[in-house]
Amino acid sequence: MNKILFFAHLRDAVGVEFLTLDAGGKTVAEFKDELVAKYDLPRMETVMTAINEEFAGNDEIIGEGDEIAFIPPVSGG
């Protein structure tokens, strides 16, 4: 199982700070697609992904027990 962390508008869309789901063996892109379908998450194409606190690309494979964080872009002045 994997701990999935959500930040900013994603947290609001899911309704919780984190979920525990099975993402092991999937690519980041595949897992994002599953989350969009299940939770109707907005703007996932602009969201950064971190696996075990290191940024990961869409082709990276998620391992069993990895912690995955989805971090939307931040704007400000």
Score class of each variant (00 low, 15 high):
Ala23Asn: 01
Val16Gly: 06
Phe55Ser: 09
Phe18Leu: 07
Phe18Tyr: 14
Asp66Ala: 10
Ile62Asp: 00
Phe6Cys: 01
Ala50Trp: 05
Val74Pro: 12
Phe55Val: 13
Ile71Ala: 06
Leu10Gln: 03
Phe31Cys: 02
Pro72Tyr: 04
Met1Gly: 13
Ala29Leu: 13
Thr27Val: 09
Pro73His: 08
Gly57Lys: 14
Asp66Pro: 03
Ala13Trp: 06
Ala56Pro: 03
Ile71Leu: 15
Leu21Ser: 05
Asn2Val: 05
Met48Phe: 13
Ala50Pro: 04
Glu45Asn: 14
Gly15Lys: 11
Ala29Tyr: 07
Glu60Met: 13
Lys26Gly: 01
Ala56Tyr: 03
Arg43Pro: 02
Lys3Tyr: 10
Lys26Arg: 13
Glu30Gly: 05
Phe70Pro: 01
Pro72Asn: 08
Gly57Phe: 09
Ser75Pro: 02
Gly65His: 08
Phe31Pro: 00
Lys32Leu: 01
Gly25Lys: 07
Ala23Trp: 02
Leu21Tyr: 04
Val28Cys: 02
Asp66Ile: 09
Pro73Val: 10
Glu64Met: 09
Tyr39Val: 04
Phe70Gln: 01
Phe7Cys: 05
Ala29Phe: 09
Asp59Phe: 08
Ala56Met: 10
Met48Thr: 14
Val47Phe: 01
Phe31Tyr: 07
Lys32Gln: 06
Lys32Val: 02
Arg11Pro: 01
Gly24Phe: 04
Val47Arg: 00
Phe18Lys: 11
Asp59Ile: 04
Gly65Asn: 11
Phe7Lys: 00
Gly63Cys: 11
Thr46Leu: 12
Val28Thr: 02
Leu41Lys: 04
Phe31Met: 05
Ile61Glu: 03
Met48Lys: 13
Asp12Tyr: 09
Leu10Met: 06
Ile4Ser: 00
Gly25Val: 07
Glu64Pro: 00
Leu35Tyr: 01
Ile4Pro: 00
Ala29Lys: 14
His9Cys: 04
Phe18Ala: 11
Phe7Ile: 04
Asn2His: 08
Gly65Arg: 08
Asp12Leu: 10
Ala37Cys: 02
Leu21Trp: 08
Glu54Lys: 12
Leu5Arg: 06
Leu10Glu: 02
Ile51Ala: 09
Phe70Gly: 00
Phe18Met: 09
Pro42Leu: 07
Phe55His: 13
Thr49Gly: 03
Asp40Asn: 15
Asn2Thr: 09
Ile62Gly: 00
Glu34Met: 05
Pro72Ala: 10
Asn58Ser: 14
Ser75Arg: 12
Glu60Arg: 15
Asn58Ala: 14
Leu10Thr: 01
Lys32Trp: 02
Ala23Leu: 05
Phe18Arg: 10
Gly57Ala: 12
Tyr39Asn: 03
Gly24Thr: 10
Ile4Gly: 00
Gly76Ala: 12
Met1Ala: 13
Val16Lys: 14
Gly65Val: 11
Gly63Gln: 14
Val14Gly: 06
Gly63Ser: 14
Ile4Arg: 01
Asp12Thr: 15
Ile61His: 01
Ala8Val: 08
Ile51Cys: 09
Lys3Ala: 06
Glu67Arg: 07
Glu17Ala: 12
Ala69Phe: 02
Asn2Lys: 05
Leu35Arg: 00
Gly77Leu: 09
Arg11Glu: 13
Gly63Lys: 15
Glu45Pro: 01
Glu45Asp: 15
Asp59Leu: 08
Ala13Tyr: 07
Glu53Ala: 14
Ala56Gly: 11
Gly57Ser: 15
Gly63Ala: 15
Pro42Phe: 05
Lys38Cys: 06
Gly15Leu: 12
